[in-house]
Design a protein around this nucleic acid. Sequence first.
DNA 1: TGCTAACTTGTACAATCGTCCAAAATAAGG
DNA 2: CCTTATTTTGGACGATTGTACAAGTTAGCA
Lengths: 220, 220
Amino acid sequence: MNAAIPQEKQRQRAPSKRSLETRARIWDAAESLFAERGFDGASMRDIAKTADVPVGLVTHHGGSKEALFASVVGRRAEELSEARTNALAARAELGPLTLTAILECFFGPYLEKAETGGPQWRAYARLVGYVSADARWHALAAECFDPTAGRFIDAISTLYPHAHRQTISAGFVYSVSAMLALVTSGWRVQALGDPRVDAASHLDELVSFCVAGIEAAINR
Amino acid sequence: MNAAIPQEKQRQRAPSKRSLETRARIWDAAESLFAERGFDGASMRDIAKTADVPVGLVTHHGGSKEALFASVVGRRAEELSEARTNALAARAELGPLTLTAILECFFGPYLEKAETGGPQWRAYARLVGYVSADARWHALAAECFDPTAGRFIDAISTLYPHAHRQTISAGFVYSVSAMLALVTSGWRVQALGDPRVDAASHLDELVSFCVAGIEAAINR
DNA sequence: TGCTAACTTGTACAATCGTCCAAAATAAGG
DNA sequence: CCTTATTTTGGACGATTGTACAAGTTAGCA
């Protein structure tokens, strides 16, 4: 436990600029390889080679392999959570929230970063899918994503006061799985149908799907 | 490729009863461990230990690790596909198909086997989620599941002749991801909401969610 | 500028990995 | 029962794994 928040021993000097760059390169390499091959499939030496540093540096900057993994997962989790929370708060200013608006605020930042945030965010988006799917990382996934998810479920519950919370939670989990499928299984849609047109319509289609699904589950 | 259907060299004698039992024990062990820890997380020695046989026997009965994995995934895939196809055919006899009926025929056999088919089917259900999520096994997943999925998408397309096939495919992929999430992320629903009541209502709730979602995506 | 914490390097370690193989034990087919 | 294909055993192989460590280099801070 607590792998994501290790006891930082007191540091007596500021890290050098070069070491920060090195650390970032290592974390980026780990992010890409963990997302591509999973925790066990990516070796410390693979990461070191991708980052173009000796093996020892990976341990030095990332700690143990598990700690490195947790750090990489947690690094962008907060930024993602803030983007989602801010989007929801901003939307609430404009007027009463709808289910469509709530889901757009949850899906939007994730999909936008995955599609236009550069290769690292694209890798991270896939990494989130991996962490969410593998039972081994339940605790880590819960630590990184459940608080924000809980807030969004609360927002939905406010809209439907007499709906059971477990129904809303189930619908939200289904919706998140669909969101992840859009990023991790886009190939499957293309294999089973025709090639998709533009990326912008993905969000609208996904939101339509989930809004109708959640409302149907509530009114069942 | 073709890892699932290796060239069987001519066998001059029938396999003994004991060897069949051993092979089944090895495959069951591989199924459980692959589902629990993934391909890289489960070692051949772990599998041998779980099956209570020497390491060499795993190679003897399963071939290479990749071949063993493909065999284990493919073993129950045909039975599952047949159950789905038969359910759809039987339902078609009773009267005109609806989207609800089609999805029930696709989700039902999987969820029923996962919940009441014993520990091996439960493990297999999780294994299906793993194979579907990991990009490394796209070809295997496509080989095992896409033909049947294609037939169900065809059935849905018949119901909505003027809907784009990629819209239906996307909705179906979202639906399948939700189905898998029900098995692999049941913990998450419980963590974010209250404990679920009975298992039978899962199917109805899931179907309601996906039917409404697909129809909304089509009519968008 | 000098001191020293921090960073970097390369190597070494024990453990485990997938695969292979020769010999012994087993059991099917004549 | 005898022959022999098959199954089973236990160990060995080289490669790779995560981690640790001592020595050398860099750079922050006084």
